[in-house]
Design a protein around this nucleic acid. Structure first.
Length: 202
DNA sequence: CCACGTGTCTTGCCCGAAAT
DNA sequence: ATTTCGGGCAAGACACGTGG
């Protein structure tokens, strides 16, 4: 997996966040998640070792408050921030760019999913029209299947389920709960399912 | 001497699981 | 919710050998 932050940049960004005010570890995780619009959130196993390291280097200090460690930047930490101000500015613009890229990718996938669902609905409507034009062949045995009058309730159910699924996927994408690999896999599975349905409807 | 390639070591990002 | 632990992985740093 490619690291979101390259060498030494996470610690720089943590110093920047702490320069805005004292924060505990979990709060820093949430702030990073917000900064990346929910598309990336470092795990606790990433943040706490970094904070410990910064503390042993004297760049941050902590005070225990209510069962949690509240970290604050030291003068040494501020000195490093000043020293690396240029690098921090580059980092900020890099983060903005990558957030835009990730958001665009999520949007594309959402559009793609919506498009596939729209195609399926159109094909289902077309299939329903065909069914109404061409009554089913007379069966020689078994009960006769009577076509539903007007809009088929089954079609409505299809419609409802597909719409619900679109909403579900959209929510997961916005919450950053789906990885790129998962989304691409989902799209492939959806394409396969659509192909299967098309064959069934022919 | 210098440029280049290669191998090894170090550093840092990152995660999941488990404990508190 | 918060912290710790153990480990994988990639990039950077460095030393060393080789050929021109």
């Amino acid at each position: 997996m490619t690291a979101v932050f390259s060498h030494g940049r996470l610690r720089l960004y943590l110093l920047k966040l702490l320069d805005d005010g004292p924060k505990h570890g979990y709060e820093l995780i949430r702030l990073l998640e917000e900064r990346f619009l929910g598309l990336y959130a470092p795990s606790a196993g990433t943040i706490y070792p970094r904070l410990q390291r910064l503390e042993t280097e004297g760049l941050v200090t902590h005070t225990a408050a209510g069962g949690r460690k509240v970290y604050d930047i030291t003068d040494g930490g501020r000195a490093e921030l000043r020293q690396r101000a240029g690098e921090l500015a580059t980092l900020e613009s890099d983060i903005s760019a990558s957030v835009e890229d990730l958001a665009a990718l999520a949007g594309e996938i959402q559009t793609e999913v919506r498009g596939s669902v729209r195609d399926l609905k159109r094909e289902l409507r077309e299939a329903a029209r065909q069914t109404r034009r061409e009554p089913p062949p007379v069966r020689t045995a078994g009960p006769a299947v009577r076509p539903a009058a007007g809009e088929s309730p089954l079609l409505a159910e299809f419609d409802q389920r597909l719409a619900a699924f679109t909403v579900e996927v959209g929510a997961l994408v916005r919450a950053g709960r789906l990885t790129d690999v998962q989304l691409r896999t989902a799209i492939r599975v959806l394409d396969g399912a659509l192909d299967g349905l098309r064959r069934l409807l022919r």
